[in-house]
Design a protein around this nucleic acid. Structure first.
Length: 148
DNA sequence: GCCAACGTTGGC
DNA sequence: GCCAACGTTGGC
């Protein structure tokens, strides 16, 4: 799951009450579908810092609440406001994530790209803009070892 | 700051 | 339904 560290980075998450925060503001249908249909309580996710000096994976977190409507879509004051969203037909979803661990060092995009074991991982593909992408169990375990 | 990639919008 | 125009993302 990607976020810009200047906007909301892993340090922000760690400082939140209960180290938990709704992952809201996702306004892309593919990512929405994953939030809504696939991400379940207890699932794990990597925290990825994007659009920054050293893009890469900086830690891990746990999904503590599975997909539910992202209320920011109803708030005209929010930059995530969506006038077409209704209570009957909520367009956008979010999950709650909880900080689990910050890695001692960033596993940079550059490093991640260098491993043939991670070839094909969606987040590493050129032009990948999706803010939420799946990780296989093998990829997950491989990356965790890099973090040691 | 540049620009490639790609999603969305809207005219037709 | 096509596709040009436009906006956004994000690495570099």
């Amino acid at each position: 799951m990607k976020s810009e560290p200047d906007v909301f980075g892993i340090d922000h998450l760690q400082k939140r009450p209960n180290k938990t925060e709704p992952w809201d503001g996702v306004r892309n249908y593919q990512a929405r579908n994953m939030l809504r249909d696939q991400m379940k309580k207890g699932d794990k996710a990597f925290f990825y810092h994007s659009n920054c000096e050293e893009p890469g994976i900086v830690g891990m977190m746990t999904i503590v609440k599975s997909g539910y409507p992202d209320a920011t879509m109803y708030n005209p004051e929010s930059k995530y406001f969506d006038p077409k969203a209704t209570a009957e037909n909520p367009r956008w979803f979010r999950v709650d994530v909880k900080f689990q661990k910050k890695f001692k060092h960033t596993i940079s995009l550059k490093e991640l790209k260098s491993y043939k074991q991670l070839k094909g991982m969606p987040v590493l593909q050129k032009g990948s803009r999706l803010s939420i992408t799946p990780v296989t169990e093998a990829q997950w375990n491989f990356i965790l070892k890099l973090a040691e």
